[in-house]
C-alpha cells in the first residue's frame, strides 16, 4: 500500500499532519450520490476523510451523465450507491466507503446517521431533504446544497442553532418538471459544499446562519444572513 503521507503530501503541506489526522478520524454521510453527491464524496476522499457513507437508491440514467462525475456510459442501469462506492474506493484506498442502497424518507437511516460526524444533503427534492433533516441527530451538522441552471444555494444546518430547511422551504413539495442543471455549477457548488463540511468538521462553519448564493455566468457570490423563524 502507498503511504498515506505520500498521497496526502500536498494536503499536509497546506494544513499540516495534525489536521490530516483529525480528518482521518471523521465520518460523513452523503445523502444522494447524484450531481452534488459525486463531487462532494470525491473531494472528501481526496481530503482524507476516514469514512464516507454514500446513500442513494437510484440507478444511473443517461440524463445523469452531463454532471454526475463518478459515472460513465458503461454504468447505465447500475445502482448509484454501489458504483459510487467502487469509484471512491479506487481513489486512494484510505477511506472506508460504505454503500447504502436506500431511499431517504422511506428507509430507516437513523443508525447510519448516528455513527457520522456530519451529513451532506445532496438530495434533489424538498420532501426527501425534509425527511433527512428530521432524521438528523442532535449535534450533527448538515451542509445542504441545491441547484437550478447555473445557480446554487448552500447553507449549514445545525440543529437548535440555525434555520431549518422546513422553515426556509415551508410548503414546497416535489416538482415533476425537468430542472435544468449545467456541469459548471455542480462542480463549483459541490466543491464549496465539501469545503463547508471540512469547516464544520474542524468546528469552524462559515455558513451557519448564512446562505451562500452562487451564480456561475456572472461569477456572482454572496452571503445572505438567515435566522430561525
Amino acid at each position: 500500500m502507498i503511504a498515506r503521507d505520500d498521497i496526502f503530501v500536498r494536503n499536509i503541506a497546506f494544513w499540516g499532519s495534525e489536521q490530516q489526522d483529525i480528518l482521518a478520524g471523521k465520518s460523513v454521510f452523503i445523502a444522494g450520490v447524484g450531481a452534488l453527491g459525486c463531487v462532494v464524496a470525491e473531494i472528501l476522499v481526496r481530503c482524507g476523510i476516514g469514512r464516507v457513507v454514500v446513500a442513494d437508491r437510484g440507478v444511473i440514467d443517461p440524463p445523469d451523465l452531463n454532471r454526475q462525475a463518478l459515472y460513465t456510459v458503461g454504468d447505465l442501469g447500475e445502482p448509484k450507491a454501489y458504483i459510487a462506492a467502487d469509484r471512491l474506493n479506487a481513489l486512494t484506498g484510505l477511506t472506508e466507503v460504505v454503500a447504502m442502497n436506500v431511499s431517504i424518507g422511506e428507509d430507516d437511516i437513523a443508525g447510519a446517521l448516528s455513527g457520522c460526524d456530519g451529513v451532506a444533503d445532496c438530495l434533489d427534492n424538498f420532501p426527501s431533504r425534509f425527511a433527512l433533516e428530521d432524521a438528523l441527530p442532535e449535534k450533527i451538522f448538515m451542509v445542504t446544497g441545491a441547484l437550478r441552471g447555473d445557480y446554487g444555494q448552500l447553507t449549514s444546518i445545525i440543529p437548535g442553532r440555525t434555520v431549518r430547511l422546513r422553515e426556509l422551504f415551508a410548503g414546497f413539495g416535489k416538482t415533476e418538471k425537468i430542472v435544468p442543471v449545467i456541469p459548471t455549477i455542480v462542480f463549483a457548488a459541490g466543491s464549496l459544499m465539501a469545503q463547508e463540511i471540512l469547516n464544520n468538521l474542524l468546528c469552524k462553519p462559515q455558513l451557519a446562519g448564512r446562505i451562500l448564493v452562487v451564480g456561475m455566468a456572472g461569477f456572482y457570490l454572496e452571503h445572505v444572513p438567515v435566522k430561525p423563524a
Binding site: 453527491g37 445532496c122 434533489d124 424538498f126 431533504r129 437550478r148 430542472v179 455542480v186
Partner: peptide, 10 residues
C-alpha cells in the same frame, strides 16, 4: 426584505 428562488435540484 429579500426573496430568493426555491431551488432543490442537484
Amino acid at each position: 426584505f429579500a426573496v430568493m428562488p426555491p431551488v432543490s435540484a442537484a
